[in-house]
């Protein structure tokens, strides 16, 4: 500061030039910073929106149909159950499922009402084949108990109600479940009127029939697992089976 006037003004000029440059640089930095923030926010918002929309779309695609009427349902002597309007013989939808299998439960939740509606609308003949796919414990015994109990239900309507209750109360695959007294309770809740339903369930007199039928179906149909849904004898892609809209389209097309 204690220098001559000329030097000072020179120094001041240089200083003000430096300040100007510095201010410009600061403005530049601020602009870049703003641009960065805006770009980041945009990308972030787009990414989050994409995730949200995708999840919403996936959920809505898997939306179950509203359950309507139920077509006449009859329990066959081999334990399979036919659900069809009278006179409807094709296309045939064969559903191979295991009461203990979580994917089957999921399928019933997502597409169960679609199967029923298709049958009620006369667009298909639906045949349920409850089998036991598990070979290890405790799942095997759970499945056999439930399957054997379902064979005690002689009325189609009651069988369907029992079927739904079994899935609703499906036990975890790591514990013993579908116990005899529970099965009796659910059978009663399903409106079972057949005499001797209690003993039929608790004695497990249909257990062997369940195992034999499972072995026979497994061999004949060459099942890869449960659930397997066949349309006129051809296995349907699970992506279709688990998407009510696609399922309805595929069956409607086969009905033409």
């Amino acid at each position: 500061m204690g220098k001559g006037e000329r030097v000072m003004s020179k120094g001041e000029r240089a200083k003000s030039a430096r300040e100007k440059i510095r201010a410009q640089q600061a403005a530049e930095r601020a602009r870049e910073q703003r641009k960065r923030v805006v770009t980041y926010m945009t990308v972030g918002v787009v990414a989050v929106a994409a995730v949200g929309l995708g999840a919403w779309y996936a959920a809505s695609k898997s939306q179950a149909e509203q359950a309507g009427d139920t077509a006449p349902t009859t329990v066959q002597s081999d334990g399979s159950v036919v659900m069809a309007k009278s006179g409807v013989a094709k296309p045939v939808i064969d559903i191979y499922e295991d009461f203990q299998c979580p994917a089957c439960k999921q399928m019933e939740e997502v597409s169960g009402s679609t199967f029923r509606n298709l049958a009620a609308e006369g667009l298909a003949k639906v045949v349920y084949h409850p089998i036991t796919i598990f070979s290890t414990e405790p799942t095997k015994s759970n499945s056999v108990r439930a399957g054997a109990a379902a064979r005690c239900m002689t009325d189609g309507k009651q069988w369907l109600a029992f079927h739904d209750l079994l899935y609703k109360n499906q036990p975890s695959e790591t514990v013993e479940g579908f116990k005899a007294d529970q099965l009796v309770t659910w059978a009663k809740a399903a409106g079972a009127t057949a005499p001797g339903i209690d003993t039929c369930i608790t004695s497990q007199k249909n257990a062997q029939a369940q195992l034999d039928y499972s072995a026979k179906v497994n061999k004949e149909q060459k099942l890869q697992g449960t659930p397997t849904v066949k349309l006129n004898g051809t296995a349907m892609d699970n992506n279709v089976v688990f998407t009510p809209k696609d399922l309805r389209d595929a069956v409607t097309k086969a009905a033409k």
């Binding site: 995708g54 996936a58 959920a59 695609k61 898997s62 979580p102 994917a103 999921q106 399928m107 997502v110 975890s172 790591t174 699970n238 992506n239 688990f242 998407t243």
Partner: peptide, 23 residues
Amino acid sequence: IGNPSDSVVAVKAYQLLPDSLAT
């Protein structure tokens, strides 16, 4: 992504999350 319901089953199979969250 083609089979969201299957994906829900897979998440539930872990038995780690409550059902609604797993969905």
